[in-house]
Design a protein around this nucleic acid. Structure first.
Lengths: 137, 137
DNA sequence: CCTGCACCCCGTAGCGGCTACGGGTGCAAG
DNA sequence: CTTGCACCCGTAGCCGCTACGGGGTGCAGG
């Protein structure tokens, strides 16, 4: 119920997004071009906050810009289909799981290797050993 | 024990790295500029393979280019100090663990949400709900 | 000897998803 | 009236490559 004009700065902080990012989203047509004041300043409405907040939460959940484009289209009131949304989300979940597995493997190797470090100013080091060892994927 | 000249293509495949990436590493001074044949082709030596393979393994372990620069300096035979190497690796391990934790949280939220999808062409969808819900970090 | 082809040369632009910079207006409070 | 912030715009930079285009080189087969 704010009466102040919805400038880009206010929109950005209302949605918890960087101001420059809002302009970027407009450039790549993720956000629609808003109305302008006589002097050319952007004038947003409540709906823009909701859209931007949606985008922000989707980004936090790691969805790509293109996936968000799809989700936004599917989120249109007339259009919503849980099955189609589920497909996008499942694809993303699969990608997240793949990255997670990779990162976990990495963590294990690094943790084991670092743990074997003496911490001495010695010339032999397990970390360098693992990087120098001839092993091919 | 190969007698064939070590061209960039051979070096790249010996170390398991893309050819363009080798030239990129040279541009950013991660690989030293090699000797050249009369016609200007790069002529590498065995040492270059070892250095490039080191870089590749470090990249696979997720070290940044700048971290690798440091590791390569510390790996110099005269220079090696396990304590200093350990510090770089520990920093990287901390970063990996932070990403891992974030990604795990993400995975849980996505998995839970997707699991609640009906799969119907219904207008209500848990995935859209979570993106539309007003919650601020 | 000539042709064809793989390999090499170089510089530059593109990817994703922003972020920063620079130089210019608009506008409101003190 | 002046200060100073918020906004305007276009462009370049970040990381770590990858791709593209338009050439030149080197070697094997015919």
């Amino acid at each position: 119920m704010s009466r102040r004009p919805l400038t880009i700065g206010r929109l950005a902080s209302a949605a918890g997004v960087n101001l420059e990012t809002v302009r970027y989203y407009e450039r790549i047509k993720l956000m629609p071009p808003p109305a302008r004041t006589a002097s050319g300043h952007r004038a947003y409405e409540e709906g823009h906050i909701r859209r931007l907040a949606f985008i922000r939460r989707a980004r936090e959940l790691g969805f790509s810009i293109e996936q968000i484009r799809t989700l936004l289209a599917l989120a249109e009131p007339t259009r919503a289909s849980c099955a189609e949304v589920q497909e996008v989300a499942q694809t993303h979940l699969d990608e997240v799981r793949a990255k997670l597995a990779d990162l976990a493997k990495l963590e294990r190797i690094l943790a084991e290797t670092v743990a074997r470090c003496s911490g001495d100013p010695a010339p032999s080091c397990p970390v360098l050993d693992i990087l120098t060892t001839q092993k091919r994927a």
